[in-house]
């Protein structure tokens, strides 16, 4: 891949207590690209995002963003780095006690000394970019799920970050909102010249928009490539995942022994 990577993940291992979550992950995210990390729930995708954001520290290896090793930064350095990042949380995580306007203006007010008129104009621009100009005086509780996600997106890009992370941006959306959010992610990435990382298990929507895909299973990368590579992948798990098949390497049944034994239709020796 390209040499100029904004985010580099090298041999990252991570364990909660002694339970390994990530096992030697290597990834690289070149500037300007939109890259997806896919996998089943609980495979370590979100944990990986938390490493990039500096919330968690790897037990081995490192994550480099913009040339700096994240877990070696002190509190101030980390906060400076985070100002250049944006993260969209699973259900938006809008501040429920503030209006849409205040939500989008939040970072501008916290981190800049811009006068209120300029903040107003910027907020309106961001809201317009996600197609929600006119909702500024609503409270988050008055928004639909898709709208809330778009407001959260506007808040994420408030300070024009160089890196945008999306944690399950498609979870719980209706088909129309799904397409809208998907297209917004693509367009904002290109318009801002940012680098985007999408963590998701929504295959169909993300294959439409992303440049490159990493497949993670059980804490390790099992496949990577462009959308076409992934669709054509010979890996049994990837095939099952992409086409949503019921049985495959991930079995339908919980590994619990033979049900027939429990029913008594079969004896211990296996004779029916």
């Amino acid at each position: 891949m390209l040499s100029e990577a904004l985010v580099e993940i090298r041999d990252v291992n991570f364990a909660y207590d002694s339970r390994p979550i990530l096992k030697g992950i290597n990834m690289s995210f070149p500037k300007g690209r939109l890259i997806a990390i896919m996998g089943l729930s609980g495979c370590g995708k979100t944990t990986l995002l938390r490493h990039i954001g500096g919330v968690l520290k790897p037990t081995k290896g490192y994550v480099k963003v913009d040339g700096q090793v994240i877990h070696e930064l002190d509190q101030d350095g980390l906060y400076r780095m985070r100002r250049k990042m944006g993260m969209l949380f699973q259900f938006g995580a809008l501040f429920t006690d503030m209006t849409v306007f205040d939500n989008v203006a939040f970072q501008m007010r916290e981190h800049t000394d811009l006068p209120e008129e300029i903040i107003r104009d910027l907020v309106m621009m961001k809201l317009h970019a996600v197609g929600l100009y006119g909702t500024q005086n609503l409270m988050p509780a008055e928004l639909s799920g898709g709208m809330a996600r778009r407001v959260a997106l506007a808040r994420t890009i408030a300070l024009d970050p160089m890196l945008i992370m999306y944690d399950e941006p498609f979870a719980g959306l209706d088909p129309i909102s799904l397409t809208v959010v998907g297209q917004l992610i693509r367009r904002l990435n290109d318009a801002l010249g940012a680098t985007s990382i999408v963590v998701t298990h929504d295959v169909q929507e993300s294959l439409k928009i992303v440049d490159y895909i990493y497949f993670v299973s059980d804490g390790a990368i099992i496949a990577e490539g462009t959308a076409d590579d992934i669709r054509a992948s010979g890996e049994a798990f990837v095939h099952q995942f992409v086409y949503g098949e019921m049985d495959g390497p991930i079995p339908f049944h919980y590994p619990a022994g033979d049900f027939n034994l429990d029913l008594g239709v079969k004896d211990q020796r296996g004779a029916a």
Partner: peptide, 17 residues
């Protein structure tokens, strides 16, 4: 509730303590 809905995490990711 702010914690459960990730508002606290979001704030931290926005570099606000």
């Amino acid at each position: 509730l702010m914690k459960a809905t990730e508002q606290i995490s979001a704030m931290e990711m926005m570099a606000v303590n």
